[in-house]
Structure formats: C-alpha cells, structure tokens
Design a protein around this nucleic acid. Structure first.
Lengths: 143, 143
DNA sequence: GTGGCTGCAAATCATTTGCATATAC
DNA sequence: GTATATGCAAATGATTTGCAGCCAC
C-alpha cells in the first residue's frame, strides 16, 4: 500500500521514514490542498507522537525535491498538493474551497525565449465556484 | 502632483487622507512590488508619525476597492502592485526580484464557460531572471 | 556508527485587534 | 457633528530555530 511512496522517496534518495510516508499518502488520497494544520491534526489521530515540526520539515523536504507542490494562493497559510504536474487552482472566496483547474497556456514559452529560466508556474484564480454561483442565483430569485 | 491619486480615491468614494495619497504615490512610482515593511519604512522617513497599522489598513482598503493588487507570490509576506490590469509576475529565486510579465492566456474564458465567476487572476512564475541566468552562465564558463 | 530526522519548547515575524485620539467631510 | 481613519500597544497565528535523543541506512 505504501510501496508507491517508498519508491518515490527512493527515487529521490530521501530517507524512508513513517512520517514522510504518511504525509505523502495523505496528500495523495486527499485532493483538498490541505494546510499544515489540517495534515498535522489528521495524522496525529493515528500517530499521537507526531510533531508539527516534523510535518513542516517533511513538507519542505518533499517540496524541495518536487515530490509535492506548495501553493501560496491563500496568502495566509501554505497549502500543499500531491500533484506536481502543471495545473492551476481556483480559490472560492465564498466557501474557501481550492479546486484544480486544467487549462493550458500556450504563451508560457514566450518568456523562456526571452531568457528566463522557469522552475515553477502557478495559475491562481479567485472568485465564486460553480456551486456558490448557483447558490447566489437561488438567493437572488427568492428576494 | 497628487491630484491623480485624489481623483482615484474620489472615484471610489474613499476619504482622502495624506497617508493614502502617499501610499498610492509610492506604489505608482515604484515598480518593485514592495512589501508592507518596505512601504512603511520608506514613507516613515518623510512622515515620522506614520504607523504601520495605517499602512496595513490603507493597503487593505485600496485593495478591496481594486485600486491596487495584492500579490501572494512570495508566500511569506504580502506584496503590492499599483497596476491592477491583468498581468503576471516572475519571482527570481536567486536575486528575489519580482518582475512584471505580460503574456495573455486565451484559455481563461474556458473556466468562465464552465460556470465559475472569476474575480482575480494571478500568474506566478518562479525561476531565474534574465540577469541571473547570464551570471550563472558566466560562472559556469569560469570553472 | 553516524548523519540526518524527529519532537519538544522557545523564538521570530507578519499580520490583526482593541481602543483612544484625531481628522475628513 | 459624526463616522471613519490614524496610531499605539498588545495579541495572534503561522512558521522557524535550537537542541537532545532517535532511527534509517
């Protein structure tokens, strides 16, 4: 079950610790782009000895090796994403959810041609998600 | 000289205070995407009574009225941009500079069609800026 | 065996809050 | 005159740091 994550860590010559494996598994199986606090309090339930410092350390290590992605969309807390392929994110200003957005931007290579060396690309959208748009329409109809 | 900013504030029915005018002017004349601390310590030189709380308050008000833009590209501190039209940003991981990027993404409207209501779009790129790429090449040649 | 990892407590840093005074309109 | 903005000090909350003991390799 955890073999997938053992392999991932091995590929990057990282030590295989139970904490790292649990963090990777949690991110892989939850598509919610959780905060450090969310990851910590959830894993703490099953591993009461877990330290928040370890969560911070592990996330930093995994991110530096590009196993996971750090999102700065909220501006107040870091959020993490297991998927490290290029995709974008939508933050709903009403319900707070962060949703994956899969659009391609064909013009990105233009800035490579200009002489930049790109390591990361983040597309952040903010507004109302589909469900909250629907809800608002309903409320408008009532009044 | 400050009339431009007086007008801007009037258009948004915001009270015209010397602090707000100075902050707007600073952002308009500095294309560096400064932090709160940078804005504060710079303006404090000429207005020693200025409070950092006022800088925070003013920036929040101006941003809520879309007079300025809040960037979360660094993840650790807020940065502000006077330009509020759609454009993107590049953070150099070597020198720390934040540079404006003007590319268009023709696919954004796709997610509007899907039912989202977009209020903000942020494109964040991270990597090496042109100058740092040049520097690195030079260093590589030497060794 | 050893260097890197974990976990705890304390420290740091950006940002927010409470409140009294001052100012724009 | 009144509602809102300013400025100060204290509080908060996310993240970082120092360090002792532990574990992966």
């Amino acid at each position: 079950m955890l073999e997938k994550y053992v392999e991932l860590l091995k590929e990057h010559s990282l030590k295989i610790t139970p904490q790292r494996l649990q963090i990777l598994k949690y991110l892989d199986t939850h598509n919610t782009h959780p905060t450090v606090e969310e990851i910590y309090s959830e894993l703490k339930k099953r591993s009461p000895s877990l330290s928040k410092t370890t969560v911070y350390n592990s996330l930093e290590t995994l991110q530096k090796h590009s196993l996971i992605q750090l999102l700065t969309i909220s501006g107040t807390q870091a959020r993490y994403d297991f998927k490290h392929d290029m995709h974008h994110h939508f933050l709903c200003t009403n319900c707070g959810k962060i949703i994956d957005i899969d659009i391609k931007c064909p013009n990105i290579e233009k800035i490579v041609k200009e002489g930049y060396e790109i390591e990361e690309v983040h597309g952040y959208f903010k507004g109302l998600c589909k469900q909250c748009v629907q809800q608002q329409r309903g409320r408008r109809r009532e009044s």
